[in-house]
Nucleic acid binder design. Structure first.
Length: 419
RNA sequence: GCGGCCAUGGCGAAGUGGUUAACGCACCGGAUUGUGGCUCCGGCAUUCGUGGGUUCGACUCCCACUGGUCGCCCCA
């Protein structure tokens, strides 16, 4: 085998791709109901967009970007996430000139250079939404609600919403100072990563999985205890709205998202129980539009990992309502019948029915087998005898029942039974 | 970037140093001359990821490489 698929990527083949279509359809339908419009941006952008947007100190920028130079010497990067691109597009196309809010969604591939493993690919797919132009807490709640409903719509159970507020540029420094003061005496007990985080991004120590770090941070200052008179009430309103929307959530004061742009509301969708993990997450990013060169504009959004959703559906053994069989498989016997079959097949398809036939000159038995394999609901048999009488036999493959009908009634017949 | 495990036909999978590489599924043909799903019969790997080494002899042992997979870090 000479050519192989690049590491961390995958071909979505028939049998699997239908599940993707199903899940994507759920996302689109939900977005339609919540009145979001789709936006499609390029899969690559100037490298600096992500450096600025996602944050220089994030793992994504530090070690996971798919960066390359084009023939003109420009540094480009395959998008590691969707928000930065959407914000760039929002600013570049001056969508802020439209009446706010601007509500957008996207579905597409993202790229991160990492070691592939369960639920982690180098090319993976996200469905995400963004709302620009309002700080209204109800919007925060609606965004979370939309994400939550999406999982439910696909058939997933036990999805939990973890919620936190990470404050704003006004309250965060105060918390940061308190946190550093609290942690510094324990510096030696922290893991290596956290020791460096202490200076660079101390808040991240709060969600370190290391046991020792976890123990130390147990009594550490929480961000929500430091929220300013703007962020505090905002957070309370978000929680209140979530209750009205009947979205079950759990305040997790350790939740700190990995991207630098988040302010105030931060949330994550996680799967309960063993093998649980993050299915998606998001938050508010009130400074990002400005950071990318636009006017001061609040924003909020989330992104969900579609691979992880599919994986969870698999794990929970959710039966997706996928239909893959054809309505009618046409079996013909003899040259004349075969010729007539060409027209018949066309008529079935024109009527909106899915129809298939044999193209390998198989004998009747072979054609019947092919019909079975195509998971045909019905088989229409047209032989010399039937043709002579202007009739066709129709067989229900599930029941084995068979009857003979007028040839020109075939399309109507199949249409009636296919409803 | 680090670590564990793995690599045999289209797929799944036995074989763990001695010369026919099991078996199951799928596929093709036949029993059934115009009826699938069940049954029976037959067909289907000069070859065991790649390269090197040990040996009289390697799918089986050793090394390297490549790839896959799972985990760590982090995240979707």
């Amino acid at each position: 085998m000479k050519f192989r698929i690049p590491r961390g990527t995958q071909d979505l083949l028939p049998g699997e791709v239908e599940k993707w279509q199903y899940v994507e359809e759920k996302a689109k339908e939900l977005c339609r109901r919540y009145h979001f419009s789709e936006v499609r941006t390029p899969v690559f952008e100037q490298t600096s967009l992500f450096q600025r947007g996602v944050g220089e100190t994030t793992d994504i920028v530090e070690k996971e970007m798919y960066t390359f130079e084009d023939r003109g010497g420009r540094s480009l990067t395959l998008r590691p996430e969707g928000t930065a691109s959407v914000v760039r597009s929002f600013v570049e196309n001056k969508l802020y000139a439209d009446t706010p809010p601007t509500k957008l969604y996207y579905i597409g591939p993202m790229f991160r250079y990492e070691r592939p493993q369960a639920g982690r690919q180098r090319q993976f797919h996200q469905f995400g939404v963004e709302v620009f132009g309002t700080e209204e807490p109800d919007v925060d709640a609606e965004i979370i609600d939309l994400g939550y409903r999406f999982y439910r719509a696909t058939g997933l159970a036990d999805v939990k919403v973890e919620l936190n507020s990470v404050g704003c540029p006004r309250c965060r420094p105060v918390h940061r100072e308190a946190l550093v003061e609290y942690l510094t005496p324990h510096k030696e007990e922290l893991c290596k990563d956290c020791q460096s985080r202490l200076e660079r991004n101390p808040m991240r120590i709060l969600d370190c999985k290391n046991e020792s770090c976890h123990r130390i941070t147990e009594g550490a200052p929480k961000v929500i205890d430091f929220l300013c008179d703007h962020c505090g009430p905002h957070f309370d309103s978000v929680k209140e709205a979530l209750e009205l929307l009947e979205v079950p959530f759990h305040v997790n004061t350790r939740l700190v998202r990995g991207l630098d742009y988040y302010t105030q509301t931060a949330f994550e969708f996680v799967l309960e129980g063993k093998g649980g993990g993050s299915l998606g997450g998001g938050g508010r990013y009130n400074g990002l539009v400005e950071e990318v060169g636009g006017p001061e504009t609040p924003g909020i959004g989330f992104a969900v990992g579609l691979e992880r959703v599919l994986m969870a559906l698999e794990q929970q053994e959710v039966e997706l309502p996928l239909q893959t069989g054809v309505d009618c498989f046409l079996v013909t016997l003899g040259a004349e019948a075969k010729k007539h079959g060409v027209t018949l097949l066309k008529q079935l398809r024109e009527a909106g029915l899915s129809a298939e036939r044999d193209y390998l000159d198989r004998k009747m038995k072979g054609q019947m087998k092919a019909a079975d394999r195509a998971r045909a609901a019905y088989v229409a048999i047209l032989g010399e005898n039937e043709l002579a009488e202007n009739r066709v036999k129709v067989k229900n493959l599930a029941t084995g029942d068979q009857e003979t009908i007028q040839l020109d009634k075939l399309v109507d017949y199949i249409r009636d039974v296919s409803k």
